[in-house]
């Protein structure tokens, strides 16, 4: 499934079981279980999916099928400063693609990747609802509006 191998500790398994229990171990609550689990661990590697499958008593393939279907779920850890560039239509027509290219170039990253030091990750999303500020970039909780390619270096400097 994923290239990253992790070892689940006992407390991790306990946490997963606790989350599943809180939803009554109902198979129909799988998506809610995944939301809560990702909220806690930050991502959903294969080992975590296996633990959820065994607790909810469903095939791992079903869990994997759901995780990979929805773009909100990720199997790789995000960077400490996750960067999301809005590629919704409003941002696109106001030049979001050039901004994205600039981030890719500055960080030598592709969309969906994380820098080797785990500091930044790059992703794109579709309309954050702030089209008035297009093009929009999110870094962690912070929103940057009307971003031009020339602003990218300065923005990244804030996180040095």
């Amino acid at each position: 499934m994923s290239s990253i191998k992790i070892e689940l500790r006992k407390e991790d398994v306990d946490k997963i079981n606790e989350i599943c229990d809180s939803f009554g171990n109902e198979q129909s609550e799988l998506i809610n279980v995944l939301h809560k689990t990702q909220e806690h661990f930050g991502y959903l590697p294969a080992e975590i999916q296996e633990a959820i499958a065994s607790k909810l008593n469903i095939p791992v393939a079903q869990v994997y099928g759901v995780v990979t279907f929805y773009s909100f779920f990720t199997m790789t850890p995000k960077g400490r400063h996750p960067i999301s560039i809005c590629m919704g239509t409003a941002c696109y027509v106001r030049g979001a693609e050039k901004v994205l290219d600039e981030f890719k170039k500055e960080l030598s990253l592709q969309v969906g990747q994380t820098t080797p030091d785990g500091k930044f990750s790059l992703s794109s999303l579709r309309c954050v609802g702030a089209c008035g500020l297009a093009p929009v970039v999110l870094i962690g909780e912070k929103t940057y509006g009307r971003v031009a390619p020339d602003d990218v270096q300065d923005i990244l400097k804030e996180y040095q």
């Binding site: 129909s28 998506i31 939301h35 929805y70």
Partner: peptide, 21 residues
């Protein structure tokens, strides 16, 4: 009920399957 970022889930039959987990 929470969606998780899939455009097709706006289609009503897909939405219902998604709500069923």
């Amino acid at each position: 009920r929470y969606g998780a970022g899939a455009f097709v889930c706006g289609e009503e039959t897909a939405l219902i399957h998604s709500m069923e987990g």
